[in-house]
Design a protein around this nucleic acid. Structure first.
Lengths: 222, 222
DNA sequence: GAATCCCTTGTGGAAATTCACAAGGGATCA
DNA sequence: TGATCCCTTGTGAATTTCCACAAGGGATTC
């Protein structure tokens, strides 16, 4: 069974709950860090002392400013951790349930478990710990559902940029101009029009307003 | 000091953290309930036995389905509780930070404290408990900020309906038609155009797409 | 009752977006 | 090389939205 576990979670009341639950469930030494950089530091320090962590349980969103979810930093944290200690096991324990985000996460990061916070998140987390300890991966029912949804359209970079500009109030002409300036193709007024039309079709949106509303709700342009 | 405290929080890892923090901070009996109806039941039961709770710490969003925040149920819970036990003290402890929602909440409910979950939410919560125990009200810095923001535009019912229809892909003509059918005035094509223009001005949006995006981000049309 | 203000609605033209049809260019394949 | 396909871009017309100016109606005030 795991001997050293590190928990990264910035919200204090959640941190407290997770730590005490994990402590009760395992015989491991359980440490905790409230911020990304602190987490990385502890991992490096443990490595240096030759008593490395064998499991990291991490949230995805850390409050840089409290207004925005910022999954980037959670991703970055995991990437950095993997660089300094490739063999560490990682379980993501987060409130993030949007299929698009979960999918994109699994596509890029190599983690051992993904558990969504919720009514019975902790019991799912203990299941995940057990599974990962045995060398398996674990996804909780909620995230499994999200991963198995067929109709989750993924957007490429071009489409995300386009939709973001629309959300920012750019006219099609202005988007064209901007794309030309930034050497992004296709960039003619006309092609941009077509791309938008295609997106409308894909998401069954009747207007561009609805289109941007939908992709925003799905968390595709954050 | 409080003698009986009830905590309503559905997410298990949060519940655990809050309960243990509150237990450590007070000498009170601390009970917990994971669902709204259960909370109400416990309060009624305690009243019947003549050992009522003197403080309720409640979240606002309870997961009926896990996809949507549902502040309504938190509001409803508090309303119901106030009916059966008007003198109970109430502290809201929630992740909800959107100014519009906090404001609308304070306008309608009579609560004694409002604390936002966050990095140091628990220490704010203990401050709130102390203040409320002394007969004062307490709002944490984050929610105080939200309440003091000047530029938080509130939308009336008409505007919300209008924006929702826009988000649903309705054309201005279709909105007009719909408003006529439902006896909502003003309902001429022309007036709807004007209302939208006014909203664009209010929110400094260049296009209707941006307008709907903005109000959606602010949580004004959920 | 007249003056004033505010809101709703109308009109017409400008601007932006949507749509159908089509030309050109590059890639693939027989 | 020619045929085919896919993507980008263009053109012009229809639809939708934006905007400036103004008329009518109800409420308030003097």
């Amino acid at each position: 069974m795991f001997k050293k576990i590190l928990i990264a979670e910035d919200v204090d009341n959640e941190n407290l709950g997770i730590v005490s639950a994990v402590k009760e469930f395992t015989d491991a030494t359980v440490d905790t860090a409230q911020f990304c950089d602190k987490t990385l530091l502890k991992i490096k320090e443990a490595l240096r002392k030759n008593i490395p962590y064998d499991l990291l349980i991490s949230d995805l969103s850390f409050a840089l400013d409290y207004k925005k979810h910022n999954i980037t930093s959670g991703k970055q944290l995991i990437e950095e951790v993997k660089k300094v200690q490739p063999d560490i096991r990682i379980i993501v324990f987060t409130g993030e349930k949007k299929p698009a985000i979960i999918k994109s996460f699994f596509a890029n990061q190599k983690i051992n478990g993904y558990v969504c916070k919720g009514l019975y998140g902790l019991s799912e987390l203990t299941k995940a710990i057990t599974a990962v300890d045995r060398g398996n991966t674990y996804t909780c029912p909620v995230s499994k559902d999200a991963l198995h949804q067929k109709n989750v359209l993924q957007l490429n970079k071009y489409e995300v940029q386009l939709l973001k500009l629309l959300a920012k109030g750019y006219k099609q002409d202005e988007i064209s101009q901007r794309f030309i300036e930034n050497n992004i193709t296709p960039n003619s007024r006309r092609s941009i029009e077509d791309k938008i039309r295609k997106l409308r079709d894909d998401f069954s949106a009747k207007t561009n307003i609805q289109l941007v509303y939908i992709v925003n709700q799905l968390g595709l342009i954050e």
